[in-house]
Write a protein that binds this DNA or RNA. Sequence first.
DNA 1: AGGTTGACCTGGACGC
DNA 2: TGCGTCCAGGTCAACC
Length: 299
Amino acid sequence: MPELPEVETIARGLAQRVTGDVIESVWLGSKPEPLKSPAAEIAQTLQGARITGVRRLGKHIVVDLEPQGNSLKIVPGKTSRAKSKSVLATKAQKSAPAPKAQWIVHLGMTGQLLVCRSDAELAKHTHAIAKLASGRELRFVDPRRFGRLAVVRTDAGFATPGIEPLEIGLDDFAKLFRGRKTPIKSALLNQKLLRGVGNIYADEALFRAGVRPRRRASSLTRAELARLYESVKQVLREAITAGGSSISDYVDSNGDPGEFQMQHRVYGREGEPCLTCRTRIKRVVIAGRSSHYCPKCQK
DNA sequence: AGGTTGACCTGGACGC
DNA sequence: TGCGTCCAGGTCAACC
């Protein structure tokens, strides 16, 4: 479910609500799929850490952490309570400022990262809970288990390929598609090129640009690339303003749905009239993904 | 090497 | 009501 605007909405909400809070303890479910880092490493990194910020990188949520006792010398007795003699404690002792850490969350198709009261009912498919010093909890819920949790503790921090679509310039944007035989729709979904665009916004951007999803990426004219460039940015910005698109289970960190699904012009509108020319919207499958377009408005 | 397909999961919608 | 089928916002590994 979550593409760039949804992840951005969630990250902004979390930043507002949990920045400065401290993770007191962590519970991780028994299902191993969601964990990309070893459970012990995740627990150890999060426990006692102060949240210094939350942001989005592509479709990832990055929770910036200041490990426990960062500026202090950590002695084994101090980290005591849990699992950890901890690699963390050892490292912190050596280098005066302990390395910053990050908690990386990818929501997959159905993941949710929610802030709630600790007495709130536990949703089915809750895979992780971070208890906060403020008395609230940060919960990761994901029925389909396509989501992923990881921690990163390198100086460089979390990195992912691809360019942010809201930051790229037109020339670099055009370069991404040069010589690519793949359909433009698939190229837009390729996270190694642009990071954050997903199925809904690819379809919506192509409609606004007047380009059919099956067109080979390399066949787009400069004018079409320029229109697509603007369309991608426009549709993402509008969707962020609307708080994202809620098709079935997307909610922000507060549990509230987005509004942008009301403004979809082609996605999910198969058989309905084009809002511009009344032609029926078509749905085709491209590289396994359903793709919606107006056969008249898009060339 | 670039491009395409299927697998990974669960649950909701729909047809019979 | 119940069962089967299809579909879903994302990403990989495995193929061609």
